[in-house]
Amino acid sequence: MTMIIGTWTINEVIQDRPALDPMRLCQTRIYGAPGRWLLLNADPSSAANLEWFIDQFCDHERLEAERLGVSPYVICDGEVEATDIGAGGVIYHPFLYGSLDRPTAKAGFYGLAGWHERRHLLRALYEGVAFATNMCIENLRRVAEIKEVRIAGGGARSRIWTQIFADVTGYPINVPDGIELGARGAAMCAGISIGAYRDHRAAVRKATSISWRHIPKSESKVKYSSIYSKFKDSISDASHIWEKLIK
C-alpha cells in the first residue's frame, strides 16, 4: 500500500481485480498497467494540520530553526520525540478541513490540563493524524489486502512521525528516497511509454529506492492500541457536538 501524508492523506492499493465497497468509502479506478486496478480512499485530516499549528503557535520554534539553519518542522520533531507516547492524555481530532467520512467533523484538542505544554499538543497532533489515517486504512482493508506500506508526502520526511505511523497501523513502513515522488512517478510512466522501461515493475526497480524502514515497536503498538480505541470513542462522542455547532 502507498500512504501519502500531505495536505490530504491518500491511501492506495494496486491489485488484479476491482473491488466494490458496499459502504462507499473506497474507490476503484482503472490503473495504468494492463489488468491492474487502483483501490483508494482519502481524507483531508493529514499533515496540513501541522502546517496550521506551526503558523499559529510556533513562533519560538521558527526563531530557533532560523538560528540553527534548519526547518521549523525539525524543531517540532525534536519536541515530539521528547514527549511520551499518548501526549500526557491529550487527544487531537485532525479535522481542521473537515472529513469525507464525517461531513460535520471539527478539529479539537481534548483532555487538556494546566500542566500540559505545547509539546504535548504537538505530540497529540502527530498521533491524531496517524489515528485518522489508520481509520482510513481500516476502511481500505475491508476490500484490499495490505502487507506493508510505502509512505510519501511532506510528512514522510519526519522520522519520528513515520515511526508513529508504523506503531499505530502495525505495518512496516518503507520511506522511499527523494521528494516530489508524484513527479517521479509521472516521469517513470513517460519512460514506459517511450520504451525506457519494460513495464511498471521494471521502472520501480530501476528508478526508486528505500531510504529507511520502520518496524512497529511491540511496546508502542500495545500502547497505541489502547489510545486508538479512546480516539475512536472520542470521535463518536464529539459527533453530537459537531452536529449542534453547524446549526
Rank of each mutant, 00 (worst) to 15 (best):
L122V: 00
P94A: 03
V90E: 12
N139L: 09
M135C: 08
V129E: 01
G89Y: 06
R62G: 09
Q163K: 05
D101V: 05
P103V: 14
R142G: 10
G111Q: 09
W161F: 15
C58A: 10
I146D: 03
F109C: 08
P103R: 14
A113K: 11
G153L: 03
E66F: 08
S99Q: 02
V70G: 01
I160Q: 10
A48K: 11
E66I: 00
D84C: 09
G89Q: 04
D59C: 01
L121C: 13
H116K: 12
Y126S: 06
E148G: 13
G78Q: 13
A105H: 02
L122W: 11
E148D: 15
E61M: 02
N139E: 04
A156S: 13
W115Q: 14
I164D: 01
I137V: 13
V80S: 03
A130M: 11
A47F: 13
L68Q: 14
F95K: 11
P44Q: 15
H116A: 12
E66M: 11
V129C: 05
I151H: 08
G114N: 07
A47Q: 14
G155Y: 07
L100P: 06
D84Q: 10
R119H: 05
V70L: 08
L40S: 11
Y92H: 11
V143N: 02
L122C: 10
R123H: 07
P44M: 10
E138N: 02
A47Y: 15
A65Y: 06
A113N: 00
C76P: 06
L40H: 07
Y92N: 03
L50Q: 02
H116M: 08
R141M: 14
N41A: 09
G89R: 06
F95I: 02
L40G: 07
F53H: 12
S158H: 08
T162F: 05
L112S: 00
L112C: 00
N49S: 11
G89I: 01
I137M: 10
C136G: 12
N139P: 03
G69E: 00
W161I: 04
F57S: 09
V74I: 15
N49V: 03
T162H: 03
E64H: 07
V129M: 10
I75H: 00
N139S: 11
S45D: 05
F57M: 13
S46E: 13
S46G: 13
E145M: 04
A124N: 06
A105T: 04
P44V: 02
S99H: 05
Y97F: 13
L50F: 08
A130R: 09
L125K: 02
A82C: 01
H120G: 07
A144S: 07
E117Y: 06
E117C: 05
D55I: 07
P72W: 01
A82T: 06
A107H: 04
R62F: 09
C58H: 01
G155L: 05
I160E: 09
I54Y: 11
Y110I: 15
W52N: 07
P94G: 06
A42Y: 15
N134W: 01
P72L: 03
